[in-house]
């Protein structure tokens, strides 16, 4: 740079140099508190549900209770297979509480990454520094991926911990792919939030877009579970794509897994393109 030549040679003080991936690094550093908080929430939720499985599975009264519920309800909640460890973990955690928690985390992170940053007015100054818009979007998307995968890893570790004590008897490989699907589903919601935030520059549209994918996916799945006539709705549900075949018991095929991460990548790429095209901060 020409500016370097003009700098006085006498100044020998410490240099703060340009670093690799400054936006990515900052996103992770800024996000660690939030990540720890969500991890604690995951651990708490899992540690509430999983230890009581032995008392539920061997309990005929519990099964009677579930049998007495309306079938629409048990289908919606996916409680048909609640008597196996895999079915129980799927319906209580991955299908419900865990899905809710990780979706909220992913959507709030995704919506804040560009839309929230622009709305607060901070994105403008960042973009005036030596970084392109595509780099900003890409690095924040990468940070989103890392944080969501970290949460999926927490879920994996905690379930692994309870697998023996709670007599869940879940196959390790199936647990691993289910956690990856779980992360992939959340990532699709989070990337949609990122994209909507990048298009509009508003956090609320990001949250709306991400929540639409999560909620519509869940609702379509629940409705399609009710009757064969409505089964086609399954094909519109990312939730069903991830959990429809009960991956914790049956595993999944590689294409489903790749599909989720590929979709997230496409959404992230679209977010970068959207941000590149438009006026920022107006």
């Amino acid at each position: 740079m020409t500016a370097a030549a003009a700098r006085p040679a006498a100044d020998q003080s410490e240099l703060v140099r340009r670093t690799m991936l400054p936006i990515f690094t900052k996103s992770l550093i800024d996000g660690w508190r939030s990540l720890v908080g969500w991890s604690v929430g995951f651990t708490a939720a899992l540690s509430l549900y999983l230890p009581i499985f032995p008392s539920m599975s061997g309990n005929s009264q519990m099964q009677d209770l579930i049998d007495s519920l309306p079938t629409e309800l048990t289908r919606t909640l996916n409680y048909q297979q609640i008597d196996t460890g895999a079915g129980y973990t799927q319906s209580t955690f991955f299908g419900l509480m865990g899905f809710l928690l990780i979706s909220i985390a992913a959507i709030s992170w995704g919506a804040a990454a560009i839309g929230g940053d622009e709305e607060s007015g901070q994105l403008e100054l960042t973009l005036a520094h030596a970084v392109t818009r595509v780099e900003v979007a890409a690095q924040r998307f990468a940070a989103l991926v890392v944080k969501i995968l970290a949460l999926a890893l927490v879920a994996f570790a905690v379930i692994l911990f309870w697998n023996g004590p709670a007599e869940l008897d879940i196959d390790l490989a199936n647990l691993a792919v289910t956690c990856l699907l779980f992360g992939g589903l959340a990532l699709v919601c989070g990337s949609t939030a990122l994209l909507c935030g990048a298009i509009t520059g508003r956090r609320i549209w990001g949250i709306g877009g991400g929540a639409a994918v999560a909620v519509v996916g869940y609702v379509f799945n629940a409705i399609a579970n009710q009757s064969a006539d409505l089964e086609w709705l399954h094909w519109l549900s990312p939730y069903y794509a991830a959990f429809g075949d009960n991956p914790l018991a049956n595993g999944t095929d590689a294409w489903t897994l790749v599909g989720f991460y590929l979709a997230a990548l496409v959404l992230g790429g679209l977010a970068a393109l959207a941000l590149r095209q438009r006026d920022v901060g107006v």
């Binding site: 700098r7 100044d11 003080s13 410490e14 240099l15 703060v16 140099r17 340009r18 670093t19 400054p22 936006i23 690094t25 900052k26 800024d30 100054l125 960042t126 520094h129 030596a130 970084v131």
Partner: peptide, 23 residues
């Protein structure tokens, strides 16, 4: 949420090099 020094370090990480003596 951060100190002024930390915020400046972030921008320096993007647009550096910056002499901390200069800051």
């Amino acid at each position: 949420r951060v100190t002024g020094r930390r915020l400046l370090r972030h921008y320096a990480n993007i647009s550096g090099p910056v002499h901390s003596g200069r800051v």
